[in-house]
Design a binder for these strands. Structure first.
Lengths: 208, 208
DNA sequence: GAGATACGCTACGGGGCGTAGCGGAATGGG
DNA sequence: CCCATTCCGCTACGCCCCGTAGCGTATCTC
């Protein structure tokens, strides 16, 4: 990912092979799942030699992280005009992403693998977590401009804690609902969840 | 799990072997992680034949679900005297469970596998999700008795939606914070999270 | 050109998978 | 008591995947 801009001597690596491998990884992941995904099969589908894969990625999990990171970059946060609309929007678009088989399979698999792999944990943080916090920061800044949220605290660490909390609550709830509880994230759920997030449990528990 | 109480004819299965296998699965999971966990290694550690494993579990993922389900049953919800204390309590005890290597590795791995395995998805729902909703139901009932939350809606489906939402938000946020963001769930985080859950984003964003 | 690096291909030892077949052990029914 | 039934541990097997090494070739920089 962090490409070395200094062109080393010798034949450069094929960018076409990179794309073919990552594409093949995603499609293979959909068809056979994580545990039956093999490096040899990815190479066959991509039309490259197995050794070409191992020159770039040492393990299946690292390959899969890169293959799905680009999917998460497609997430956008169009201005919905209100904090409520922005939250519902990001919930629904994140849920749509998690409906793609390659995204959900890959995300959970690499997280599982990362629990016993420190290097993979770092790779996930930089390639996925830190990159997507931009969504929270954007929505928060807009809400502050509209006067829907108080301005930044004098303590920047305090601000970061709140941003991290919001990110974990939104992403965690959507993932848990979609993949663990195995229930649909639809407009009704997004609306109730947003009420809970903005106004608290009492409001969300009210009959109407 | 759903043992057939009618004793079939012939030699019964060894309960000791069952326990030895599940214990060996957990300890092996801690040491080698999910992807390198092999049926043969589990059998060797448990002191049973590999064929004995395959008579009980057709796949590694099903074995692991049963091996960790018992860990989740240990979760308790002692009465903290207030809704806030109860929420903080369940957050911290769930986080403590997820600090156990075998619990977090197993949970994420079986969820990943379940995205391409319908039968496993059902097994997770019955063995983990539905069983642990008791914690939300208990805390909610207590809060209603104390007058901290409105009583049940006339519509039972509405009540179920709210309970499911709370469960996904709490469990999802703790899992995401612990395993994806890879940050500690300590008392301070639990307190801020609980404020967000009970009073909404405005209160949690306030400088003090 | 010369050196360096990437490529595709082939081959290999190692190891896990899941199954089959064996003799023996533990149970319940006639 | 004897027999059918089922489980057990053990061994062996074919299959597939792993990750690496070696080769000749292609493509870049100096």
């Amino acid at each position: 990912m962090a490409g070395c801009p200094a062109p080393r001597r010798g034949r450069p690596r094929s960018a076409a092979a990179d794309r073919a491998i990552l594409d093949a990884t995603r499609t293979a992941l959909v068809e056979v799942g994580w545990s039956k995904l093999t490096m040899g099969e990815v190479a066959r589908r991509a039309g490259v030699a197995k050794t070409t894969l191992y020159r770039r990625w040492a393990a299946k999990s690292e390959l899969v992280v890169d293959a799905v990171a680009v999917l998460f970059d497609e997430l956008e946060l169009p201005d919905g005009g209100s904090l409520r609309a922005d939250v519902e929007g990001v919930v629904l678009s994140f849920a749509a992403l998690l409906r793609r088989p390659e995204a959900k399979t890959a995300l959970m698999a690499v997280i599982a693998e990362s629990t016993t792999d420190e290097a993979l944990r770092r790779r996930i943080r930089t390639a996925l977590v830190e990159r997507q916090k931009r969504l929270v920061l954007d929505g928060r800044a807009r809400a502050q401009q509209r006067g829907e949220l108080p301005g930044d605290s004098a303590d920047p660490a305090e601000t970061e804690r709140v941003v991290d909390l919001i990110f974990d609550v939104i992403a965690g709830a959507v993932v848990h609902r979609s993949l663990v509880s195995d229930c649909p994230v639809d407009g009704a759920w997004a609306a109730t969840f947003t009420t809970l997030l903005l106004e608290g449990l009492g409001a969300a528990s009210a009959p109407r």
